[in-house]
Amino acid sequence: MIFMGDKFPTQEHLKKKQNYKDIPRAGLITNPGSSMLNKTGTWKAFRPVFDAGKCINCMICYSVCPEEAVIVKDGKVSGVNLDYCKGCGICANECPVKAYEMKEESEFKK
């Protein structure tokens, strides 16, 4: 059993699922901020492919993305953080200049 001061979960714990005696009781999370370790990007079936050439930096995609996965640098959209993008396609749907194309995730796993 993990005791006070021990942190759960860490990157180490995510590599292999732990036995019931090796986790804190009651599902307690004792490592603050560890939700960042959970890469929800693996859930997506479609991936937004960004074309910087078409983008007019209107920031609509940035404001509507439910996961804050649109990356903005120096006032310009530079792409999508695929670790957290869940592939909902709202960015592609809302983009006024069609700068995003949703492609099946399987195309990238060949």
Binding site: G5, N19, Y20, G27, L28, P32
Partner: peptide, 24 residues
């Protein structure tokens, strides 16, 4: 020592947490 009480546990850990209750 911040902790989260009552988080989501799905197919991955719910079962283990129930077994802890059995032992308790």
């Amino acid at each position: 020592n911040p902790v989260t009480y009552g988080p989501l546990q799905l197919q991955d850990y719910y079962f283990e947490t129930k077994k802890q209750q059995v032992d308790a």
